[in-house]
């Protein structure tokens, strides 16, 4: 997947000279996760800029540059460090267009990596994606496959609005076919049905799509047909396909890697209750991270993060 993301930036930078990349180690070193590999060699140091370890000014400079005509793609090494740039993301990027009456545009992408599972302990393993989805004015995208990562990153770069683009830290080595067509984009704010099924609707996104698909394969052996909807973006949140699916299955499980309290499951479940109350056959189940800071020790970490068996158990509970 890291190559797919690099290709997206490469193709877009070839197309538009106003696109610039900045972040810690994104230049000659090619990025901590290798996502900017090859860009420095092709586009040079003026367009692919290493920054000091200064998250506030990385995003701040990117916002200012976006207001003044560039289209920056800023890399924040991990979503945990994005909290240091939170003010720029939510008080500036998300509000510059509206607060000044539409005068300024902020065509900015902030790329970052989220998620646990690598034994990095509590401050380096969080999945706080939902926090960023709270703010009108910001778009939040989180792909689940290499092909979609490429097409959604390209769409994010071409968007005139600020996009917070979340890559899962354990997915960079995922393999998959990607489109060679430099104009193949996926629209931001459209959910996708990843698997058809008639018994239970699973709503999920990012890494948890593959976990849910594995659970679905197991359940199929028992004759249970699960439908899986990948949200792909958390804001705008496209729930129409979810409602449509729920009206057919009358049962839903929401799977997310982040914590349950005030999580994506809370929002999606409420919206299903509001829109589809008459179609409800069982209380909606939420599969999410245990309410603890993630521990370092591998077994403990695994126990806290949703696994295939947790999804299977939740599906069986709603049936």
């Amino acid at each position: 997947m890291s190559k797919a993301l690099a290709q997206a930036m490469y193709e877009e930078m070839e197309r538009d000279p106003n696109i610039v990349v900045l972040g810690e180690e994104v230049g000659a070193q090619g990025g901590t996760y290798g996502v900017t590999a090859g860009l420095f060699e092709k586009f040079g140091k003026d367009r692919v800029r290493d920054t000091p370890i200064s998250e506030g000014v990385i995003v701040g400079a990117a916002v200012g540059a976006a207001m003044n005509g560039l289209r920056p793609v800023a890399e924040i090494m991990g979503i945990n460090f994005a909290f240091l740039a939170m003010d720029q993301i939510v008080n500036h990027a998300a509000k510059i267009h509206s607060m000044f009456g539409g005068q300024f545009k902020c065509p900015l992408v902030v790329r970052t990596t989220s998620g646990g599972g690598k034994q990095l302990a509590a401050t380096h393993s969080q999945t706080p994606d939902v926090i960023f989805a709270h703010f009108p004015g910001l778009k939040v995208v989180a792909p689940s496959t290499p092909a979609e990562a490429k097409a959604l990153l390209k769409a994010s770069i071409r968007s005139d609005d600020p996009v917070f683009f979340i890559e899962h830290s354990t997915m960079y080595s995922e393999r998959g076919e990607v489109s060679d067509d430099p104009n193949f984009l996926l629209p931001i704010g459209k959910s996708d049905i990843k698997r058809k099924g008639k018994d239970v609707t699973i709503v999920t996104y990012s890494k948890m799509v593959s976990v849910s698909l594995k659970a679905a394969a197991e359940l199929e052996k028992e004759g249970i047909e699960v439908e899986i909807i990948d949200l792909r973006s958390l804001r705008p949140l496209d729930l129409d396909p979810v409602f449509e699916s729920f009206k057919k299955t009358n049962r839903a499980v929401i799977v997310e890697e982040g914590w349950k309290t005030f999580g994506i499951g809370s929002e999606v479940a409420t919206r299903i209750y509001e829109e589809c109350f008459d179609y409800l056959d069982a209380p909606i189940e939420r599969v999410a991270q245990k309410e603890v800071p993630l521990p370092y020790s591998a077994e403990l970490e695994r126990a806290a993060i949703p696994q295939v068996k947790d999804v299977i158990a939740a599906v069986k509970k709603v049936l």
Binding site: V20, D46, R47, G56, V57, V59, G60, A61, A62, V63, G64, A65, A66, M67, N68, G69, L70, P72, D87, Q88, N91, H92, F100, F104
Partner: peptide, 25 residues
């Protein structure tokens, strides 16, 4: 005139970006 900004200090970061874009262009 790129604004009055009301989060103390935040617009210094925006200023670096405005200047960077000028330099780049």
């Amino acid at each position: 005139f790129w604004g009055g900004h009301a989060i103390v200090g935040a617009h210094l970061a925006l200023a670096t970006g405005l200047a960077w874009a000028d330099k780049q262009k």
